[in-house]
């Protein structure tokens, strides 16, 4: 499958904190060959609230699941894509959201969000429609 999701910082954090539904979800999506992108800055921000052991579990997921990939900032093109989004958010610095949106736009993937409310302020500021799938139920 060439389709997939971009994980946001809250989802990554929930996984690290041991949310069993999120853990089962990423494993099931991986089994269905759904790609999952982990933006590096979203990961970095998620780790602010994780212990080393919790961060280990997230890094373990990235290395263990075949369809999960870390999305780094590795080129000037990556920087341009990030900056094009972060400039929309200067009123409310949110680099994790900026990188997540930049990756989502680049890959054409929806964002996988554990909490839709996290995205309300971002939606109000960016001039694009954000495709966000909320993990609920």
């Amino acid at each position: 499958m060439n389709a997939g999701y971009v994980l946001d910082d809250v989802t990554i954090g929930e996984l690290g904190r041991g949310d069993l539904v999120v853990a089962n979800l990423v494993a099931a999506l991986d089994e269905h060959a759904v790609r999952m992108s982990v933006p590096a800055i979203a990961l970095a921000v998620a780790q602010h609230t994780l212990s080393e052991a919790q961060a280990d579990a997230v890094h373990g997921m990235i290395h263990r699941l075949e369809h999960v990939r870390l999305e780094p900032i590795a080129s000037t093109e990556d920087v341009l894509r990030l900056s094009a989004v972060s400039v929309q958010l200067t009123e409310q610095q949110d680099m994790a959201a900026a990188h997540t949106v930049a990756v989502a736009r680049y890959l054409g993937f929806p964002i996988l969000a554990a909490d839709l409310k996290r995205w309300e302020p971002v939606r109000a500021l960016v001039p694009w429609e954000l495709d966000i799938y909320e993990i609920s139920g």
Binding site: N24, A27, A57, H59, G60
Partner: peptide, 24 residues
């Protein structure tokens, strides 16, 4: 160490029928 941490989490997740059903 990282892989074991994730595998331990996944094992707990798969052993929880409610979490499995919700995730499905």
């Amino acid at each position: 160490r990282q892989r074991l941490a994730f595998e331990e989490l996944l094992a707990r997740a798969k052993a929880d029928p409610d979490a499995v059903a919700r995730a499905e």
